[in-house]
């Protein structure tokens, strides 16, 4: 096992999808420290989802190494999976099940049970303002409520690392505020957050560090405020993003 200096380490990571000679990720080196909120920012097709997928163990890289809390997927996939929590962009829940039934199911898969699981579900539902809707089926929920439950399903087991793929896309301001506030609180308790978003203003305020990636490469990396100051002529992260990645429209 590697020395546990960084919670996530990517070493010379490359990924070529079968049949493609263009890398989805091109020789990335990246270290993320414990307790960070790290933003992976980039246009469509930049390599964000591929990076997150590798970090979740969904598939392996073509070359390079991934260390999660000092462990590699080849040897310790089950251990790694038990310390990560994933919040996908899609509402990955069962619409015909109630909020409580969904959370109980995912809690059981993480090995939680009995009173401990029940308490944790009640606690999370209350935290995200959904306690009154615990026994309602997901298909009757609004977009913002679904996003909040989707998030709870990923954090229920108090993971060391949370991967958030566009967690606030398509929801109202109130829901977004609640989600980001609670994520900040979870982060304060020591959880590392890896976050992808297209909302530059949100990323600027939410992340402790960001990497702007495009065409599989990290173009720039650092604390949002420092990046803005360093570039001098820009006042916000969005201007830097557009300057680095270009203004041309991107397809997937």
């Amino acid at each position: 096992m590697q020395e546990n200096k960084h919670i996530i380490e990517l070493k010379y990571l490359s990924k070529y999808y079968k049949g493609s000679n263009v890398p989805a990720i091109d020789n990335i080196n990246l270290n993320i420290d414990k307790g960070e909120i790290y933003g992976l920012l980039g246009p469509n097709g930049a390599g964000k989802t591929t990076t997150i997928s590798i970090l979740c163990g969904l598939f392996g890289p073509t070359s390079g190494n991934v260390f999660i809390d000092g462990m590699e997927f080849q040897h310790s996939a089950e251990k790694i999976k038990s310390i990560i929590g994933v919040v996908p962009q899609e509402i990955a829940l069962y619409p015909s099940l109630t909020a409580k039934e969904n959370l109980t199911f995912f809690g059981h898969l993480y090995g939680l049970k009995g009173k401990h699981l029940k308490t944790r579900i009640d606690e999370c539902l209350e935290l995200f303002g959904l306690e009154k809707n615990a026994n309602r089926r997901i298909k009757t929920f609004s977009g913002g409520m679904k996003r909040r439950i989707n998030l709870i399903a990923g954090i229920l087991h108090k993971p060391k690392i949370i991967y958030l793929d566009e967690p606030t896309v398509g929801i109202d301001v109130q829901s977004r505020k609640v989600i980001l506030e609670h994520l900040k609180n979870i982060n304060k308790e020591g959880t590392t957050i890896i976050y992808t978003s297209h909302y530059m203003e949100e990323a600027e305020n939410f992340c402790s560090r960001v990497a702007i990636i495009d065409k599989g490469k990290i173009l720039t990396e650092g604390k949002p405020k420092e990046l803005i100051t360093a570039k001098g002529e820009y006042t916000d992260l969005e201007s830097i993003f557009l300057n680095i990645t270009g203004r041309a429209l991107r397809d997937e």
Binding site: C56, Q89, E90, I91
Partner: peptide
Amino acid sequence: DDGSAFRLKTMPGSFVT
């Protein structure tokens, strides 16, 4: 399609289960 499989695959020992 709805992403549940993605979530399940990132959970410990869940695909076969």
